[in-house]
Simulated assay, not measured.
Amino acid sequence: MADSLREQQLRMAGHIRDPQANPPPPGIEARRLAVYRQLFFGNLQSLLAGSFPVLHASLAAEQWQALSEDFYANHRCHTPLFTEVGGEWVEYLQARTDQPGWVAELAHYEWIETALLLSDAAETEHDPEGDLLDGVPLLSSLAVPLAYAWPVSHIGPDHLPNGTPVAPTLLLAHRGAGHKVSFSRLAPLAHALLVALQDQPLSGREHLAALAEVIGIEVAVIEAQGLALLHALRAQGVVLGTRRG
């Protein structure tokens, strides 16, 4: 019995993804199948190279080719949208534990900019003039605290890391006015506070008390500094104000 149209499509898709592991469907010239593969795989490579230019330039051509071929053949994307393929590439690289650790981190660092640029997340209702100590400070959905083991902001084809640094790279990615995404370095206290704001709806005073306990100091020692930091973050649009209700 002849294969159904669906079976033929699946055989063709499997062959185009990985011609070494999947035989071609009958009745189609190998030359034509090669054209299809070149078209589809070439589009994917162009998309990845354009979305991850630093990673593409930093990897050897053979390494990039092998990774992109394996991604194309074996990773099952959960989205049909081209704009979300970058997130799938990051997920794929995070699972490739055979690669140097900086590879997945650099990919994530490059991807987060695109993710923020394309984000249409709505902000939670808030009071922009709320009390940042007694109220619950609200972090913008367009602000993301980041922590990397590798110095991702300095990696490039001429600056490949030799070993994991002692201190992590702490960054804030933020989409501000004009849809411009910026990255800034964070001190450990600022990073810890932003992560806490992201994770728990506590008052500013409670957040600072929790940080003081972790550090092992009196809350009065960091309260003034912490409040000044919250006000600065609000001025930058990173903290929107305080939650309502």
Score class of each variant (00 low, 15 high):
residue 2 A to P: 15
residue 3 D to L: 15
residue 4 S to V: 08
residue 4 S to G: 14
residue 9 Q to Y: 02
residue 9 Q to H: 08
residue 14 G to I: 03
residue 20 Q to N: 10
residue 23 P to K: 02
residue 27 G to S: 04
residue 27 G to F: 06
residue 30 A to D: 10
residue 49 A to I: 11
residue 50 G to S: 05
residue 50 G to Y: 04
residue 63 Q to K: 07
residue 65 Q to R: 12
residue 67 L to G: 14
residue 71 F to V: 13
residue 71 F to M: 08
residue 72 Y to A: 11
residue 76 R to D: 15
residue 77 C to A: 15
residue 79 T to L: 00
residue 81 L to F: 11
residue 83 T to N: 10
residue 84 E to F: 06
residue 86 G to M: 05
residue 93 L to N: 03
residue 93 L to S: 07
residue 93 L to C: 08
residue 97 T to F: 06
residue 101 G to D: 10
residue 103 V to E: 02
residue 104 A to T: 10
residue 107 A to V: 10
residue 108 H to W: 13
residue 112 I to S: 00
residue 113 E to S: 14
residue 114 T to Y: 06
residue 114 T to C: 03
residue 119 S to V: 11
residue 123 E to K: 01
residue 124 T to W: 04
residue 124 T to F: 00
residue 128 P to A: 13
residue 130 G to H: 02
residue 131 D to N: 07
residue 135 G to Q: 02
residue 137 P to C: 07
residue 138 L to F: 05
residue 138 L to H: 02
residue 139 L to G: 11
residue 146 L to P: 01
residue 149 A to G: 15
residue 151 P to R: 04
residue 152 V to Y: 02
residue 154 H to M: 12
residue 172 L to T: 13
residue 175 R to D: 08
residue 177 A to T: 14
residue 182 S to R: 10
residue 183 F to A: 02
residue 190 A to G: 06
residue 197 L to Q: 07
residue 213 E to W: 03
residue 214 V to M: 07
residue 218 E to L: 04
residue 223 E to L: 10
residue 231 H to V: 15
residue 236 Q to V: 02
